[in-house]
Computed example of a mutant assay.
Amino acid sequence: MANIQYYDVILKPVVTEKSMELMADKKYTFLVHTEATKSQIKEAVEKMFNGTKVKSVNTMNLDGKNKRRGMTFGKTAKTKKAVVALTEDSADIEIFEGL
């Protein structure tokens, strides 16, 4: 496994209708590095966003979609999503403010 630093773990937030509904329960969805573990994701969220305390982390491995361009077949890259649940006394994550 590669040596992944905490700032390389979280790639970008996922902004969908379902992830916006989960924010009411203090659950935030991120695309993460495919080799990141739950403990690495927890550490990255707590270090990158001040005042946050992670209660749990749920991850999903997503296979790439089948694509076709003319007669050539291929797949898009595999991705990994993480749903991070914060404790009730934790501060909210600022990047989702105003959405």
Rank of each mutant, 00 (worst) to 15 (best):
A2P: 11
N3A: 13
I4W: 01
Y6W: 13
Y7K: 09
D8F: 03
V9P: 03
V9C: 01
L11Q: 12
L11M: 09
P13L: 04
V14N: 02
V15R: 09
E17C: 01
E17I: 03
M20C: 02
M20T: 06
M20Q: 11
E21Y: 06
M23N: 13
D25M: 08
K27S: 04
Y28H: 07
F30H: 06
V32E: 07
H33T: 01
A36V: 06
T37G: 15
S39F: 13
S39C: 04
Q40W: 03
Q40D: 08
K42A: 14
A44G: 09
E46S: 06
E46A: 08
K47I: 01
M48V: 11
N50M: 11
G51V: 02
T52H: 02
T52C: 07
T52K: 03
K53H: 07
V54A: 08
V54Y: 05
S56E: 14
S56M: 06
N58T: 10
N58E: 10
T59I: 14
N61C: 12
N61E: 11
K67G: 00
R69A: 11
G70P: 04
G70H: 06
F73D: 15
T76V: 07
K78F: 05
K78N: 13
K80L: 10
A82K: 10
A85M: 14
L86C: 00
L86F: 03
D89Q: 10
S90K: 04
I93M: 11
E94L: 07
I95A: 01
F96D: 02
E97H: 14
E97D: 15
L99S: 04
